[in-house]
Amino acid sequence: MTTMVSVKDVTKVYKRGAEELTVLDSLNLDVPEGEFVALMGPSGSGKTTLLNLIAGIDRPTKGAVVVGGKDIAVLSEGDLAKWRSRNVGFIFQFYNLIPVLSAVENVELPLLLTKLSRKERRERALTALKIVGLADRSSHYPRQLSGGQEQRVAIARAVVTDPQVLVADEPTGDLDAKSAEEILNLMETLNRDFKKTIVMVTHDPRAAERAHVQRHLEKGVLLQR
């Protein structure tokens, strides 16, 4: 099985004035293609920082982050943005849908960066909504949806560009048990049926159990399995 995500000897240091805070310390992680990995650990252990590095929204202080065979740590800001739009789907804890856009418009948003026609964009967005089971709510605005439905729209938005990797930061953290179950089922489906490589940060052991692999971080270091 080929490696989809390879984090090589990555160190991430944040500077707060004169003080330096090492969040990740010479960390190595390989995620094979089609894997579903759960990253766990206490608050401040560096889970989200690692996820951000894999998603290309942050850069390591040292080391390399290779996703789909490309070292994204060396890309310029513009190239990195372009890379994100094509290769990674991000699922947030608080869904982060744009409130003035309907469900289908939210899902369509990443497609604005493609050369697709308006009709093609709309068709793809509706297909993505169908996959997450919300085709009948396409014209609803976020305020008209429940938390679980909002998260499903956010997942549709994450997969609409058909990225290789999905990264999820506590995707069930703001949901009740039933909705969380639905979201985890959906992520399983995406992993199993659509072969998406998923890296998920979670505090919830039940959510972590749904992943194939669980990795624990503590003080910026990945614990041995």
């Binding site: 800001e77 513009g78 943005a81 094509r86 947030f92 990443p110 960066l113």
Partner: peptide, 16 residues
Amino acid sequence: RTEIGVLKTLGFSSAH
């Protein structure tokens, strides 16, 4: 601000 962050995460450049 959050939406700006989300847009950038989705791949919209700073110029966008």
